[in-house]
């Protein structure tokens, strides 16, 4: 564990050094991604000039939910880069061989070989939006809430990571470049709005099959004082841990399959 932490710091420092070598370039990348994130709010902003509420959710409540969903997503996106390119670079181009030739866990190497540093802007934007919304909504935060907030963000990031790891691992069996990642990636958008606006089928799916609801909606209900979801809120870390374990199992099976087929 200590060794892995050391390696993580080293990998991260290395990559940061590379990116910051071209400062102007990094700054453009950072702010243009931030512009993209802010533009993402455009729909909600325009919509609420025409309507007062979405179901019983006010403008700032929706903003809080949307903003919160960005924080774990931002952390996830920092390490997700290699996952999107995994099938292409690691399987088809064969870089996974190199991973297998090193005395460190394969998953560790794949996740931390590259970082998308500019995704930290999503974390920053998310925190800013959540802070503003919380102030407008006069939410009072207790000490325990701060702790819960951290737990929820960590669990959310873990849920995103687990889901996309499972999907990425599919490349070990199917070499097609663009698989099921994009449609599921687009399902992240579901998590930006109250789960209650969807029909039962989608609510079920977003809770128990692709549990994005546990990464954004259920955590926020607690901070917004919607008590009828308390059980789900407490389940968030459990769901995260379960899916993380599942992801590791699937990944390891994928590696075993790679070793026997050598795509």
């Amino acid at each position: 564990m200590k060794r892995h932490l050391r390696l993580f710091v080293l990998y991260f420092a290395q990559y940061a050094k590379v990116r910051l070598a071209y400062k102007a370039d990094f700054i453009i990348a950072f702010f243009s991604s931030m512009a993209a994130t802010v533009l993402g709010f455009g729909f909600v902003l325009v919509l609420f000039t025409k309507i007062p509420k979405l179901q019983d959710w006010s403008f700032y409540e929706i903003l809080f939910l949307y903003g919160f969903s960005l924080i774990p997503l931002g952390f996830f996106n920092v390490v997700s880069w290699n996952l999107y390119e995994f099938g292409d670079l690691y399987i088809i181009e064969g870089r996974f061989d190199r991973i297998l030739l090193r005395p460190v866990d394969t998953l560790f190497q794949v996740l931390f070989e590259k970082f998308r540093l500019e995704s930290l802007q999503e974390v920053a934007t998310g925190i800013a939006v959540v802070t503003i919304s919380a102030r407008k909504l006069n939410i009072s935060w207790h000490a325990a809430d701060y702790l819960w907030f951290v737990v929820m963000v960590a669990s959310g990031a873990l849920i995103y990571l687990a889901v996309f790891l499972i999907l990425t691992a599919v490349s070990f069996w199917f070499e097609d470049r663009v698989g099921i990642v994009p449609p599921v990636f687009n399902m992240l958008t579901f998590g930006r709005y109250p789960l209650t606006i969807y029909n039962v089928f989608i609510q079920f799916m977003l809770s128990w099959i692709i549990p994005f609801g546990f990464a954004s909606f259920y955590p926020t209900t607690h901070f917004l004082g919607r008590e009828n979801f308390t059980i789900y809120f407490h389940l968030v870390p459990v769901v995260a841990a379960t899916f993380a374990m599942l992801a590791v199992v699937v990944w390891n099976r994928g590696v075993a399959n790679y070793s026997s087929t050598g795509s």
Partner: peptide
């Protein structure tokens, strides 16, 4: 087997840790 974007010596340092 080296990292594409980083300097050779940095690659070696990473390998030193890995191994």
């Amino acid at each position: 087997q080296l990292w594409w974007d980083i300097a050779v010596v940095e690659s070696f340092k990473l390998l030193k840790e890995l191994y």
